[in-house]
Simulated scan of single mutants.
Amino acid sequence: MSISTKALQKTDPESPFQVKLIERRDPRPDDVVIEIRAAGICHSDIHTIRNEWGEAHFPLTVGHEIAGVVSAVGTDVSRYSVGDRVGVGCLVNSCGECEECVAGEEQNCLRGNVGTYNSIDVDGTVTQGGYAERIVVNERFVCRIPDELDFDVAAPLLCAGITTYSPITRWDIKSGDKVAILGLGGLGHMGVQIAAAKGAEVTVLSRSLRKAEIAAELGAHRTLATTKEGFFEEHRGEFDFILNTISADIDVDSYLRLLKPHGVMAVVGLPPTAQSLHFNALISGAKVLTGSNIGGIRQTQEMLDFCAEHGFGARIEKIGVTGVDEAYDRVVAGDVQFRFVIDTSTFNEVEAV
């Protein structure tokens, strides 16, 4: 037996989204059934379903920024009850036994984790994501959404929030640290809020000063234009930490020279092409260039609680299920501040085809 639910689905990269009926598995003893209230749009969704990264399994429903309410639980579920406010991020399964999983780092599962969509699940089926009315997920991969966070501003935290929170926390950003956020988009705007809430002096690095006002609203001390003549010399050796959120080619060496000795650049944006690096930019000043990919479930819960405690979520624009194709084009054009979120109640307005 399975659960039938409306979902936005594509049958190939070029076709528009359609509302279809898809089947979720009948809950296993350790499963939670979630009625989805809000689903964020991540640029990864776009890359995947447009098959820009290859290996998309069609027909496909994407979405890994999911917020909703528990509507049913399996017989062995102990963490959640019907009516609980919950969220699901980028993962829905892992081995649970390797050293990374035991350490709460399921994103690094040594046997291979299972993504929320476009992954092969343990039963051999392709996982289908959160642009839907409901989803069934193992309780280990469900987080509790604090009452202080509305569903729509909480949903993007399950990806954009944890993606930026994890490196900021790993490198112990604290009061007095001079932090630069490179790029003020879906990821960058969360990085600004999180670093500022930890007490850092936050600078946004952008090509222009166009977003300076909203950067200040988010908690940035200032915004600097990287295209200004002499920028890299003027600000050489200024920052303790740079969070690089952009998915475009940059002069890595020049940005590393903005760091103080022993400074860190953490990369969470993924450019489409390989980037050039001269090791001297690292050796000089004993600097660190590191990457980060989301975080484990335990840290994701920590991030949600942190955001609730400090009174912020994602800055969003809410859309209905019929507006996703247009929203994708706007994301690619950079025309959103800062995350689109699908109001899944609008599935009621559309018949499945």
Score class of each variant (00 low, 15 high):
5 T>H: 04
6 K>E: 00
9 Q>P: 04
14 E>D: 15
15 S>H: 04
17 F>K: 07
18 Q>W: 01
20 K>P: 01
24 R>H: 06
24 R>N: 12
27 P>C: 08
30 D>H: 13
33 V>G: 02
33 V>K: 06
38 A>S: 13
45 D>T: 03
46 I>C: 10
48 T>S: 10
54 G>K: 12
56 A>I: 04
57 H>I: 09
58 F>T: 10
59 P>Y: 08
59 P>Q: 09
61 T>Q: 01
63 G>D: 01
71 S>M: 11
73 V>H: 00
76 D>F: 08
78 S>L: 12
82 V>A: 07
82 V>D: 05
83 G>K: 05
86 V>P: 02
88 V>I: 13
90 C>R: 00
90 C>T: 10
93 N>G: 15
98 C>R: 07
100 E>T: 00
103 A>D: 01
105 E>G: 00
105 E>L: 04
110 L>E: 14
111 R>V: 06
111 R>K: 12
115 G>K: 08
120 I>R: 11
134 R>C: 13
135 I>S: 05
139 E>G: 12
141 F>L: 08
143 C>T: 13
150 D>Y: 00
152 D>Q: 14
152 D>A: 15
153 V>H: 05
161 G>Q: 10
163 T>Q: 10
164 T>Y: 04
164 T>I: 09
166 S>K: 04
166 S>Y: 00
169 T>L: 09
170 R>V: 07
173 I>W: 01
175 S>T: 13
176 G>H: 03
178 K>Y: 13
178 K>A: 15
180 A>I: 02
181 I>C: 10
181 I>V: 15
183 G>F: 07
186 G>H: 09
187 L>N: 10
189 H>F: 08
190 M>K: 07
194 I>T: 06
195 A>Q: 05
200 A>S: 11
202 V>A: 11
206 S>H: 02
207 R>D: 10
212 A>Y: 08
213 E>K: 15
213 E>I: 08
215 A>W: 01
216 A>F: 07
220 A>Y: 05
221 H>S: 15
222 R>W: 01
223 T>C: 11
226 T>N: 12
230 G>D: 13
230 G>S: 05
234 E>F: 01
236 R>M: 11
236 R>C: 07
237 G>L: 10
237 G>K: 12
240 D>I: 09
241 F>N: 07
242 I>S: 06
245 T>E: 05
246 I>T: 14
252 V>N: 06
254 S>A: 15
254 S>H: 08
266 A>H: 08
267 V>P: 03
270 L>S: 07
272 P>L: 12
275 Q>Y: 12
275 Q>K: 14
278 H>E: 14
281 A>L: 09
285 G>R: 13
286 A>Q: 15
289 L>F: 14
292 S>F: 04
294 I>C: 07
296 G>H: 01
298 R>F: 03
300 T>L: 09
302 E>K: 09
302 E>V: 05
305 D>I: 00
305 D>G: 03
306 F>M: 03
310 H>P: 00
311 G>L: 07
321 V>W: 01
321 V>L: 02
321 V>Y: 05
323 G>D: 14
325 D>N: 15
326 E>S: 12
326 E>A: 15
332 V>P: 01
338 F>E: 06
341 V>K: 02
341 V>R: 02
347 F>M: 01
350 V>H: 04
